[in-house]
Design a protein around this nucleic acid. Sequence first.
RNA 1: CCAGGGGUGGCAGAGUGGUCAAUUGCAGCAGGCUGUAAACCUGCCGGCCUUGUGCCUGCGGGGGUUCGAAUCCCUCCCCCUGGACCA
Length: 351
Amino acid sequence: MDKFQLITQNLEEILTIEDLKNLIKKRKKLIHYIGFEISGLVHLGTGLATSIIIRNLQKAGVKTQILLADWHSWINEKLSGDLKKIQKVAGNYFKKALSVSLELVGGNSQKIDFVLGSDLYHHNDLYWQNFIKIAKNTTLARVQRSIDIMGRKMEEGIDFAKLCYPIMQVADIFALKVNLAHGGTDQRKAHVIARMVAKNLNFDPPIALHHHLLLGLQKPPKYPLTQEEIKEMAIDLKMSKSKPETCIFIHDSSEEIKRKIMKAFCPPKDIIYNPPLDWLYWLILPIKNEIKIKLTNAAHKVYRFEKRNELLNDYQAGLIHPLDLKEILIKELSGLLEPVHHYFKKIQLPV
RNA sequence: CCAGGGGUGGCAGAGUGGUCAAUUGCAGCAGGCUGUAAACCUGCCGGCCUUGUGCCUGCGGGGGUUCGAAUCCCUCCCCCUGGACCA
Protein backbone atom coordinates (compact mmCIF):
# COMPACT_ATOMS: atom_id res chain seq x y z
CA MET A 1 0.00 0.00 0.00
CA ASP A 2 1.46 3.37 -0.91
CA LYS A 3 1.76 6.47 1.19
CA PHE A 4 -1.29 8.15 -0.21
CA GLN A 5 -3.49 5.15 0.43
CA LEU A 6 -2.22 4.74 3.94
CA ILE A 7 -2.81 8.35 4.79
CA THR A 8 -6.29 8.56 3.35
CA GLN A 9 -7.62 5.29 4.69
CA ASN A 10 -10.73 5.66 6.84
CA LEU A 11 -10.91 9.42 6.39
CA GLU A 12 -14.23 11.05 5.69
CA GLU A 13 -12.82 14.17 4.06
CA ILE A 14 -9.52 15.53 2.77
CA LEU A 15 -8.85 19.17 1.93
CA THR A 16 -7.65 18.75 -0.65
CA ILE A 17 -6.68 15.50 -2.25
CA GLU A 18 -4.73 17.36 -4.91
CA ASP A 19 -2.66 19.21 -2.33
CA LEU A 20 -1.93 15.98 -0.54
CA LYS A 21 -0.78 14.26 -3.69
CA ASN A 22 1.49 17.18 -4.48
CA LEU A 23 2.98 17.15 -1.03
CA ILE A 24 3.78 13.48 -1.32
CA LYS A 25 5.14 13.91 -4.79
CA LYS A 26 7.49 16.65 -3.63
CA ARG A 27 8.71 14.26 -0.94
CA LYS A 28 8.19 16.90 1.71
CA LYS A 29 8.48 15.89 5.32
CA LEU A 30 4.96 15.15 6.47
CA ILE A 31 4.06 16.56 9.84
CA HIS A 32 0.75 15.77 11.46
CA TYR A 33 -1.02 17.17 14.45
CA ILE A 34 -4.31 16.77 16.22
CA GLY A 35 -5.41 18.85 19.16
CA PHE A 36 -7.39 17.55 22.10
CA GLU A 37 -9.28 19.51 24.65
CA ILE A 38 -8.71 18.18 28.10
CA SER A 39 -12.00 17.25 29.66
CA GLY A 40 -13.45 14.21 31.33
CA LEU A 41 -12.89 10.60 30.39
CA VAL A 42 -11.68 9.63 26.95
CA HIS A 43 -14.34 7.93 24.86
CA LEU A 44 -14.28 5.88 21.67
CA GLY A 45 -14.45 8.96 19.48
CA THR A 46 -11.59 10.89 21.02
CA GLY A 47 -9.54 7.84 21.80
CA LEU A 48 -9.96 5.22 19.12
CA ALA A 49 -11.41 6.94 16.08
CA THR A 50 -8.56 9.43 16.04
CA SER A 51 -5.97 6.79 16.87
CA ILE A 52 -6.82 4.80 13.79
CA ILE A 53 -5.81 7.74 11.65
CA ILE A 54 -2.66 8.33 13.66
CA ARG A 55 -1.74 4.67 13.30
CA ASN A 56 -2.20 4.89 9.54
CA LEU A 57 -0.09 8.02 9.35
CA GLN A 58 2.65 6.43 11.38
CA LYS A 59 2.71 3.53 8.94
CA ALA A 60 3.12 6.08 6.19
CA GLY A 61 6.12 7.54 7.95
CA VAL A 62 4.46 10.77 9.01
CA LYS A 63 5.67 12.60 12.09
CA THR A 64 2.70 12.57 14.44
CA GLN A 65 1.96 15.08 17.18
CA ILE A 66 -0.76 15.49 19.75
CA LEU A 67 -1.46 18.91 21.16
CA LEU A 68 -2.76 18.71 24.67
CA ALA A 69 -4.75 21.89 24.30
CA ASP A 70 -4.83 23.17 27.84
CA TRP A 71 -5.48 26.76 26.90
CA HIS A 72 -8.31 25.81 24.58
CA SER A 73 -9.84 23.74 27.34
CA TRP A 74 -9.46 26.70 29.65
CA ILE A 75 -11.23 28.94 27.16
CA ASN A 76 -14.04 26.44 26.86
CA GLU A 77 -14.34 26.06 30.61
CA LYS A 78 -13.48 22.40 30.65
CA LEU A 79 -12.85 21.01 34.13
CA SER A 80 -14.44 24.11 35.67
CA GLY A 81 -12.10 26.32 33.68
CA ASP A 82 -9.30 25.63 36.14
CA LEU A 83 -6.09 25.85 34.11
CA LYS A 84 -3.95 24.22 36.77
CA LYS A 85 -6.30 21.31 37.02
CA ILE A 86 -6.51 21.01 33.24
CA GLN A 87 -2.74 20.82 33.01
CA LYS A 88 -2.60 18.21 35.70
CA VAL A 89 -5.20 16.03 34.01
CA ALA A 90 -3.47 16.54 30.67
CA GLY A 91 -0.22 15.14 31.97
CA ASN A 92 -1.49 12.57 34.42
CA TYR A 93 -4.42 11.16 32.56
CA PHE A 94 -4.99 12.32 29.02
CA LYS A 95 -1.55 11.61 27.73
CA LYS A 96 -1.71 8.11 29.08
CA ALA A 97 -5.26 7.46 27.90
CA LEU A 98 -4.41 8.57 24.40
CA SER A 99 -1.23 6.51 24.36
CA VAL A 100 -3.13 3.42 25.44
CA SER A 101 -5.78 4.08 22.82
CA LEU A 102 -3.18 4.35 20.12
CA GLU A 103 -1.58 1.08 21.18
CA LEU A 104 -4.97 -0.61 21.16
CA VAL A 105 -5.45 0.10 17.49
CA GLY A 106 -1.91 -0.89 16.57
CA GLY A 107 -0.10 2.44 16.64
CA ASN A 108 3.12 3.31 18.39
CA SER A 109 2.75 5.67 21.31
CA GLN A 110 6.51 6.11 21.56
CA LYS A 111 6.49 7.80 18.18
CA ILE A 112 3.98 10.44 19.17
CA ASP A 113 5.15 13.88 20.22
CA PHE A 114 2.92 15.22 22.94
CA VAL A 115 2.93 19.00 23.14
CA LEU A 116 1.27 20.91 25.92
CA GLY A 117 -0.28 24.15 24.69
CA SER A 118 1.27 26.19 27.49
CA ASP A 119 4.73 25.02 26.55
CA LEU A 120 4.15 25.98 22.97
CA TYR A 121 3.03 29.50 23.85
CA HIS A 122 5.55 30.22 26.57
CA HIS A 123 8.09 32.88 25.54
CA ASN A 124 6.99 32.44 21.96
CA ASP A 125 6.81 35.88 20.38
CA LEU A 126 6.42 34.40 16.95
CA TYR A 127 3.33 32.53 18.03
CA TRP A 128 1.61 35.66 19.20
CA GLN A 129 2.72 37.62 16.18
CA ASN A 130 1.09 34.97 14.06
CA PHE A 131 -1.95 35.12 16.24
CA ILE A 132 -2.39 38.80 15.39
CA LYS A 133 -1.60 38.23 11.76
CA ILE A 134 -4.23 35.52 11.54
CA ALA A 135 -6.73 37.75 13.29
CA LYS A 136 -5.95 40.58 10.88
CA ASN A 137 -6.63 38.27 7.99
CA THR A 138 -9.93 36.99 9.27
CA THR A 139 -13.27 38.63 9.86
CA LEU A 140 -15.39 38.58 12.97
CA ALA A 141 -18.24 36.99 11.07
CA ARG A 142 -16.04 34.17 9.94
CA VAL A 143 -14.72 33.46 13.40
CA GLN A 144 -18.23 33.52 14.78
CA ARG A 145 -19.36 31.02 12.22
CA SER A 146 -16.46 28.77 12.99
CA ILE A 147 -17.14 28.61 16.70
CA ASP A 148 -20.79 28.03 16.02
CA ILE A 149 -20.07 24.84 14.16
CA MET A 150 -17.86 23.67 16.96
CA GLY A 151 -20.85 23.03 19.12
CA ARG A 152 -20.75 26.24 21.03
CA LYS A 153 -23.90 28.23 20.87
CA MET A 154 -23.44 31.76 19.61
CA GLU A 155 -26.55 33.31 21.02
CA GLU A 156 -25.94 35.33 24.16
CA GLY A 157 -23.36 35.68 26.77
CA ILE A 158 -20.37 34.45 24.85
CA ASP A 159 -17.11 35.78 26.19
CA PHE A 160 -14.41 37.11 23.95
CA ALA A 161 -11.92 34.37 24.69
CA LYS A 162 -14.15 32.00 22.75
CA LEU A 163 -13.47 34.08 19.66
CA CYS A 164 -9.74 33.74 20.23
CA TYR A 165 -10.06 29.98 20.21
CA PRO A 166 -10.12 29.38 16.46
CA ILE A 167 -7.40 31.96 15.92
CA MET A 168 -5.19 30.08 18.36
CA GLN A 169 -6.07 26.84 16.68
CA VAL A 170 -4.78 28.19 13.39
CA ALA A 171 -1.69 29.62 15.09
CA ASP A 172 -1.06 26.18 16.61
CA ILE A 173 -0.95 24.65 13.17
CA PHE A 174 1.68 27.12 12.01
CA ALA A 175 3.65 26.94 15.23
CA LEU A 176 3.89 23.16 15.03
CA LYS A 177 4.88 23.39 11.36
CA VAL A 178 2.01 21.11 10.50
CA ASN A 179 1.16 20.23 6.94
CA LEU A 180 -1.36 17.54 7.85
CA ALA A 181 -3.92 19.08 10.19
CA HIS A 182 -6.09 16.32 11.55
CA GLY A 183 -9.42 16.47 13.35
CA GLY A 184 -12.97 15.32 13.23
CA THR A 185 -15.23 16.77 10.58
CA ASP A 186 -16.28 19.25 13.25
CA GLN A 187 -12.91 20.95 12.87
CA ARG A 188 -13.59 21.81 9.27
CA LYS A 189 -14.24 25.53 9.68
CA ALA A 190 -11.09 26.18 11.68
CA HIS A 191 -9.02 24.21 9.20
CA VAL A 192 -10.52 26.12 6.32
CA ILE A 193 -9.55 29.38 8.01
CA ALA A 194 -6.04 28.02 8.38
CA ARG A 195 -5.88 27.19 4.70
CA MET A 196 -7.23 30.59 3.71
CA VAL A 197 -4.96 32.72 5.83
CA ALA A 198 -1.90 30.56 5.19
CA LYS A 199 -1.29 32.20 1.85
CA ASN A 200 -1.38 35.66 3.37
CA LEU A 201 1.16 34.63 6.01
CA ASN A 202 3.40 32.94 3.50
CA PHE A 203 2.78 29.44 4.74
CA ASP A 204 1.74 26.51 2.62
CA PRO A 205 -1.90 25.79 3.29
CA PRO A 206 -2.09 22.80 5.59
CA ILE A 207 -3.92 19.78 4.29
CA ALA A 208 -6.92 19.00 6.44
CA LEU A 209 -7.60 15.37 7.27
CA HIS A 210 -11.01 14.76 8.76
CA HIS A 211 -12.04 11.51 10.31
CA HIS A 212 -15.63 10.40 10.72
CA LEU A 213 -17.41 11.43 13.89
CA LEU A 214 -18.90 8.36 15.48
CA LEU A 215 -22.63 8.60 15.99
CA GLY A 216 -24.03 8.73 19.49
CA LEU A 217 -26.10 5.69 20.41
CA GLN A 218 -29.28 7.62 20.96
CA LYS A 219 -32.22 8.04 18.72
CA PRO A 220 -31.66 11.21 16.68
CA PRO A 221 -33.81 14.27 17.45
CA LYS A 222 -35.45 13.71 14.10
CA TYR A 223 -35.97 10.47 12.27
CA PRO A 224 -35.70 9.49 9.54
CA LEU A 225 -32.86 11.70 8.43
CA THR A 226 -31.35 12.25 5.04
CA GLN A 227 -27.64 11.96 4.42
CA GLU A 228 -27.46 15.74 4.10
CA GLU A 229 -29.25 16.32 7.36
CA ILE A 230 -26.86 13.97 9.09
CA LYS A 231 -23.94 16.01 7.84
CA GLU A 232 -25.51 19.25 8.92
CA MET A 233 -26.37 17.92 12.35
CA ALA A 234 -23.19 15.94 12.81
CA ILE A 235 -22.20 17.85 15.91
CA ASP A 236 -25.51 17.14 17.63
CA LEU A 237 -25.50 13.51 16.63
CA LYS A 238 -21.96 12.65 17.57
CA MET A 239 -21.00 10.71 20.61
CA SER A 240 -20.75 13.06 23.53
CA LYS A 241 -19.59 12.82 27.10
CA SER A 242 -22.45 14.99 28.16
CA LYS A 243 -24.81 12.13 27.36
CA PRO A 244 -23.01 9.22 29.00
CA GLU A 245 -25.69 6.72 28.03
CA THR A 246 -25.06 7.36 24.37
CA CYS A 247 -21.33 7.18 24.49
CA ILE A 248 -18.83 4.53 25.45
CA PHE A 249 -15.68 5.41 27.33
CA ILE A 250 -12.52 3.45 26.81
CA HIS A 251 -12.78 2.57 30.50
CA ASP A 252 -16.26 1.08 30.34
CA SER A 253 -16.59 -2.47 31.59
CA SER A 254 -17.99 -5.14 29.32
CA GLU A 255 -21.23 -5.01 31.33
CA GLU A 256 -21.55 -1.30 30.68
CA ILE A 257 -20.71 -1.77 27.03
CA LYS A 258 -23.40 -4.40 26.73
CA ARG A 259 -25.97 -2.34 28.56
CA LYS A 260 -25.39 0.76 26.48
CA ILE A 261 -25.28 -0.97 23.14
CA MET A 262 -28.39 -3.01 23.86
CA LYS A 263 -30.18 0.30 24.39
CA ALA A 264 -28.80 1.77 21.20
CA PHE A 265 -30.96 2.99 18.37
CA CYS A 266 -30.68 0.41 15.63
CA PRO A 267 -33.40 0.38 12.98
CA PRO A 268 -33.55 -2.73 10.81
CA LYS A 269 -32.21 -2.41 7.28
CA ASP A 270 -31.38 1.25 7.77
CA ILE A 271 -27.82 2.05 6.81
CA ILE A 272 -28.29 5.81 6.72
CA TYR A 273 -28.64 6.36 10.42
CA ASN A 274 -27.56 3.41 12.45
CA PRO A 275 -25.08 3.91 15.31
CA PRO A 276 -24.04 0.28 15.87
CA LEU A 277 -23.52 -0.21 12.16
CA ASP A 278 -21.67 3.08 12.01
CA TRP A 279 -19.30 1.90 14.73
CA LEU A 280 -18.65 -1.44 13.09
CA TYR A 281 -17.95 0.23 9.79
CA TRP A 282 -15.78 3.10 10.96
CA LEU A 283 -14.25 1.75 14.12
CA ILE A 284 -14.23 -2.02 14.50
CA LEU A 285 -13.43 -3.06 10.94
CA PRO A 286 -10.52 -0.65 10.54
CA ILE A 287 -9.06 -1.98 13.78
CA LYS A 288 -9.86 -5.67 13.62
CA ASN A 289 -9.74 -6.00 9.84
CA GLU A 290 -12.38 -8.70 9.87
CA ILE A 291 -15.44 -9.71 11.85
CA LYS A 292 -17.73 -12.68 11.67
CA ILE A 293 -21.44 -12.06 11.88
CA LYS A 294 -24.38 -14.41 12.16
CA LEU A 295 -26.84 -13.98 9.33
CA THR A 296 -30.58 -14.27 9.63
CA ASN A 297 -30.45 -17.60 7.84
CA ALA A 298 -28.24 -18.84 10.70
CA ALA A 299 -25.12 -19.02 8.56
CA HIS A 300 -22.06 -16.96 9.44
CA LYS A 301 -20.23 -14.60 7.20
CA VAL A 302 -16.87 -12.92 7.49
CA TYR A 303 -16.66 -9.25 6.65
CA ARG A 304 -13.35 -7.63 5.84
CA PHE A 305 -12.19 -4.06 6.06
CA GLU A 306 -11.18 -3.96 2.40
CA LYS A 307 -14.70 -4.83 1.39
CA ARG A 308 -16.63 -3.26 4.20
CA ASN A 309 -19.41 -2.07 1.93
CA GLU A 310 -20.62 -5.66 1.94
CA LEU A 311 -21.60 -5.13 5.52
CA LEU A 312 -23.78 -2.20 4.59
CA ASN A 313 -25.30 -3.99 1.63
CA ASP A 314 -26.13 -7.09 3.62
CA TYR A 315 -27.59 -5.13 6.46
CA GLN A 316 -29.70 -3.10 4.09
CA ALA A 317 -30.90 -6.29 2.47
CA GLY A 318 -32.04 -7.56 5.84
CA LEU A 319 -29.52 -10.40 5.91
CA ILE A 320 -28.31 -9.26 9.32
CA HIS A 321 -30.64 -8.86 12.24
CA PRO A 322 -30.09 -5.74 14.38
CA LEU A 323 -29.64 -7.84 17.48
CA ASP A 324 -26.93 -9.90 15.82
CA LEU A 325 -25.27 -6.69 14.78
CA LYS A 326 -25.35 -5.46 18.35
CA GLU A 327 -24.03 -8.71 19.69
CA ILE A 328 -20.97 -8.68 17.48
CA LEU A 329 -20.33 -5.07 18.35
CA ILE A 330 -20.55 -5.82 22.05
CA LYS A 331 -18.20 -8.74 21.70
CA GLU A 332 -15.62 -6.93 19.61
CA LEU A 333 -15.68 -3.79 21.66
CA SER A 334 -15.37 -5.59 24.97
CA GLY A 335 -12.44 -7.57 23.68
CA LEU A 336 -10.80 -4.50 22.26
CA LEU A 337 -11.09 -2.45 25.42
CA GLU A 338 -10.25 -5.24 27.80
CA PRO A 339 -6.56 -4.25 28.14
CA VAL A 340 -7.55 -0.73 29.17
CA HIS A 341 -8.74 -1.89 32.58
CA HIS A 342 -5.36 -3.42 33.13
CA TYR A 343 -3.47 -0.25 32.20
CA PHE A 344 -5.54 1.95 34.41
CA LYS A 345 -5.64 -0.19 37.49
CA LYS A 346 -3.46 2.18 39.44
CA ILE A 347 -4.33 5.47 37.83
CA GLN A 348 -7.00 7.61 39.35
CA LEU A 349 -9.51 8.56 36.71
CA PRO A 350 -10.57 12.20 36.65
CA VAL A 351 -14.27 11.67 37.04
C1' C B 1 -20.44 54.97 33.41
C1' C B 2 -25.93 56.28 31.99
C1' A B 3 -31.02 54.67 30.39
C1' G B 4 -34.30 50.74 29.57
C1' G B 5 -35.29 45.38 29.72
C1' G B 6 -34.16 40.83 32.07
C1' G B 7 -32.16 36.66 35.45
C1' U B 8 -37.49 30.52 37.47
C1' G B 9 -35.95 23.34 37.85
C1' G B 10 -31.11 19.87 32.12
C1' C B 11 -33.28 23.31 28.29
C1' A B 12 -37.51 26.19 26.69
C1' G B 13 -41.05 28.88 29.11
C1' A B 14 -45.66 29.95 32.72
C1' G B 15 -46.50 32.03 37.35
C1' U B 16 -46.56 38.58 39.96
C1' G B 17 -48.30 37.97 48.20
C1' G B 18 -51.01 32.23 50.49
C1' U B 19 -54.27 26.72 47.33
C1' C B 20 -46.26 26.68 44.36
C1' A B 21 -41.68 21.83 44.98
C1' A B 22 -43.66 25.64 41.31
C1' U B 23 -48.63 25.02 34.75
C1' U B 24 -46.79 23.24 30.20
C1' G B 25 -43.46 21.49 26.28
C1' C B 26 -38.88 19.11 25.16
C1' A B 27 -35.07 16.19 26.93
C1' G B 28 -33.90 12.37 30.55
C1' C B 29 -34.87 7.82 33.55
C1' A B 30 -37.66 3.10 34.73
C1' G B 31 -41.18 -0.61 33.12
C1' G B 32 -44.51 -2.86 29.22
C1' C B 33 -44.59 -4.11 23.91
C1' U B 34 -40.85 -5.81 19.81
C1' G B 35 -35.52 -11.51 18.29
C1' U B 36 -32.28 -4.95 19.52
C1' A B 37 -33.44 -0.06 19.58
C1' A B 38 -37.25 3.25 17.70
C1' A B 39 -42.71 4.17 17.52
C1' C B 40 -46.58 3.25 21.07
C1' C B 41 -48.58 2.64 26.42
C1' U B 42 -47.51 3.39 31.87
C1' G B 43 -44.87 5.59 35.81
C1' C B 44 -40.83 8.84 37.63
C1' C B 45 -38.56 13.33 36.80
C1' G B 46 -35.15 19.35 43.41
C1' G B 47 -32.68 16.39 47.52
C1' C B 48 -33.38 12.76 51.42
C1' C B 49 -35.54 8.76 53.47
C1' U B 50 -38.73 5.06 57.61
C1' U B 51 -42.18 6.65 50.16
C1' G B 52 -45.47 10.00 53.73
C1' U B 53 -51.80 14.74 53.98
C1' G B 54 -42.92 13.18 55.78
C1' C B 55 -38.40 16.26 56.31
C1' C B 56 -35.02 19.64 54.07
C1' U B 57 -33.41 22.97 50.34
C1' G B 58 -35.50 26.13 46.44
C1' C B 59 -37.29 30.60 41.58
C1' G B 60 -29.24 35.10 40.30
C1' G B 61 -26.51 36.43 45.72
C1' G B 62 -27.39 38.87 50.38
C1' G B 63 -30.65 41.60 53.59
C1' G B 64 -35.67 43.35 54.80
C1' U B 65 -41.36 43.87 55.01
C1' U B 66 -45.23 40.19 56.21
C1' C B 67 -48.75 35.39 59.98
C1' G B 68 -47.03 34.02 54.95
C1' A B 69 -42.59 36.00 49.28
C1' A B 70 -40.60 33.12 43.03
C1' U B 71 -44.06 37.10 43.66
C1' C B 72 -43.30 43.60 47.58
C1' C B 73 -38.81 46.79 49.31
C1' C B 74 -33.28 47.60 49.65
C1' U B 75 -28.60 46.18 47.95
C1' C B 76 -25.00 43.54 45.18
C1' C B 77 -23.77 40.46 40.89
C1' C B 78 -24.59 39.01 35.92
C1' C B 79 -26.88 39.19 30.88
C1' C B 80 -29.40 41.89 26.75
C1' U B 81 -30.56 46.61 23.96
C1' G B 82 -29.29 51.56 23.20
C1' G B 83 -26.26 55.61 24.64
C1' A B 84 -21.79 58.01 26.80
C1' C B 85 -16.38 57.85 26.95
C1' C B 86 -12.10 56.64 23.93
C1' A B 87 -12.42 59.50 18.55
